[in-house]
Nucleic acid binder design. Structure first.
Lengths: 316, 316
DNA sequence: GCATTTACCTGACTAAAGTCAGGAAATGGA
DNA sequence: TCCATTTCCTGACTTTAGTCAGGTAAATGC
């Protein structure tokens, strides 16, 4: 990896994290322990479930409980049962709590303003657009791709959303029943693989690899959630699937696509897929692609030999 | 201030600071309390004085002392007297400590690499250049301009560096004795003002305002340290001096400059100074400029009505 | 209807972080 | 020489953050 790039990232971490982090601490406690402040902030105007707070803040269940009792004692929030499931509890800010929340909002604004204030108009514009870029790319880097059972809740959710989008975008509409099927067992290892991309635990895309012959596989179900487009999610999924394919001895990958999906075609071409003659009878397809896999390509940083599972799970 | 810009800065703070901050904590502990880790890191290979550590880390004197004892106990560093002043103490890493330091360096690299790793080459380039931009601008925003006595240590340091630079850049060399003088009392309020720009406590530029007539003043001693060029320091100083001038009832500002200082001329022209006929006999000058001040100009964010002193001082 | 599981709470801890008052040694100015 | 100041250290705290092992009530599966 390029050492100069690494140095730049380190300098950035140092300057930005120290400076903004320090400001954030001094601004955002308001005389209150940081944990409590974060909890108020995270609860927000619409309230939240205890579980959501726990996972979003990454805190121990007992600890959150204690923070909640303390804030309840200060009259800032109330905890009640969730409708539907009496085990879960719903946290809501009282009116005092709302006022505190508003104060934190104001401080956040002031903090942001204090960063912009010393700069001239042109410098501000540049700062803001560089920030937007970094935010986008850091989010992109936080996307996590994992193999998953094709009948898991998130996998189903992705596929449903995918089919709904196809129905909307294809000139002819889309009926899954009329399309070439890919059954769950064809997408379950070792016959095939279904992968889900996640951003902060929420699914934002999927893709699948189906083994069709000894040395040939097909890419299916490539989809990115609208909220996550422009982050390179599809490319990450594709690289991940290719790495799996390579690992399991495939030499050739194929896929078909509809002419309405122009951005998909652009991706495939960029990634080295060549258009070939129709190789199946998929009724919704207009274009057929193929790529010969090479072993261990030296492109740095792409998802080579991905771990099949990683990442920490919620709290207890 | 533009609300969209504020929102973008807030999003950035949230996403980037949380993410990188969290990574940094998880990476940089190495099983050791964060305070100790930071101290090792901050001491570095060349060592540091206790005072420097205290101010750089912003910690209580007693606390630092305790951390030092603990690390000394672990054989990671040794604390000895500073040559010159026997009260001050100098912290140096032992060879074990150096090894720890190297390990932290390596982890910092790895952290940076982990941020770059999931991205493709093009995305990396964009991330890195956006980071460079932000680092630059955040540093620029952290520059702090203050009125100061012209005989203070930092003021002297700046003026010396300024004269040395003039001697190097003027075709004819530069001898302060031959130039029109500006005595300390002429640059001390209310006769005049000397301002020093600082970045993280280190002086990085200066400038002065000298009242010459009831309604007319002169800008002198405008200088930016080479290490801080491109951050808009000179512009900040100029705005600051103009605001003071306006506050003290001046209507006209004048200044002269040498033809070798092209970037200074560009700044003055940009800031609304018009070239005028020679108004004094300064032997080193080739260009004379003048600007009519308006009251309370609406340019947002420039240093209008600056506080004469601010910013927190060290710890105890 | 009963065993499990889930979601949250409580009590009893520990470690880390930070604060404060006072005290000793070195220095510098009167 | 003496006194005020600076620099650092020590001891005695408090607060915050976080962990862990149970425990209870609601929901779920069989």
């Amino acid at each position: 990896m390029d050492a100069r790039q690494v140095q730049q990232v380190r300098r950035f971490n140092r300057v930005v994290t120290w400076r903004i982090g320090a400001l954030q601490n001094s601004y955002l406690h308001r005389g209150r322990p940081l944990g409590e402040a974060r909890l108020i902030f995270e609860t927000g105007q619409q309230g939240a479930s205890v579980r959501a707070l726990r996972t979003r803040l990454g805190l121990d269940s007992g600890y959150v409980s204690r923070l909640l009792r303390s804030l309840e004692g200060q009259g800032l929030l109330s905890v009640g049962k969730q409708r539907g499931d009496g085990r879960q509890r719903r946290v809501t800010l009282t009116s005092t709590g709302q006022a505190e929340f508003a104060a934190y909002e104001k401080l956040s604004d002031e903090l942001a303003e204090s960063i912009l204030a010393p700069l001239g108009a042109k410098q501000r514009d540049r700062l803001v657009s560089a920030m937007a870029e970094i935010e986008r790319l850091i989010r992109a880097a936080a996307v996590d791709v994992q193999v998953e059972a094709p009948d898991s809740a998130d996998a189903r959710w992705c596929v449903d959303a995918y089919f709904r989008e196809l129905a909307e975008r294809f000139e002819t509409g889309f009926d899954p029943a009329k399309s070439n099927p890919a059954h769950d067992d064809e997408l379950t290892p070792p016959a095939g693989y279904f992968v889900v991309a996640r951003l902060e635990a929420a699914p934002v895309g999927c893709g699948a690899l189906k083994r069709t012959e000894k040395r040939t596989g097909e890419i299916k179900r490539m989809w990115t959630a609208p909220s996550a487009r422009g982050l390179g999610v599809a490319r990450r999924i594709l690289h991940f699937l290719e790495a799996i394919a390579r690992d399991s001895g495939l030499k050739t990958l194929r896929l078909e696509t509809n002419r309405a999906l122009t951005e998909a075609q652009a991706l495939y071409r960029q990634e080295g897929y060549r258009e070939v003659a129709r190789f199946n009878d998929e009724p919704y397809a207009h274009h057929w692609f193929e790529k010969q896999l090479r072993r261990a390509r030296p492109t740095p940083g792409s998802a080579t030999a991905p771990a099949r599972r990683s990442s920490a799970r919620p709290g207890r």
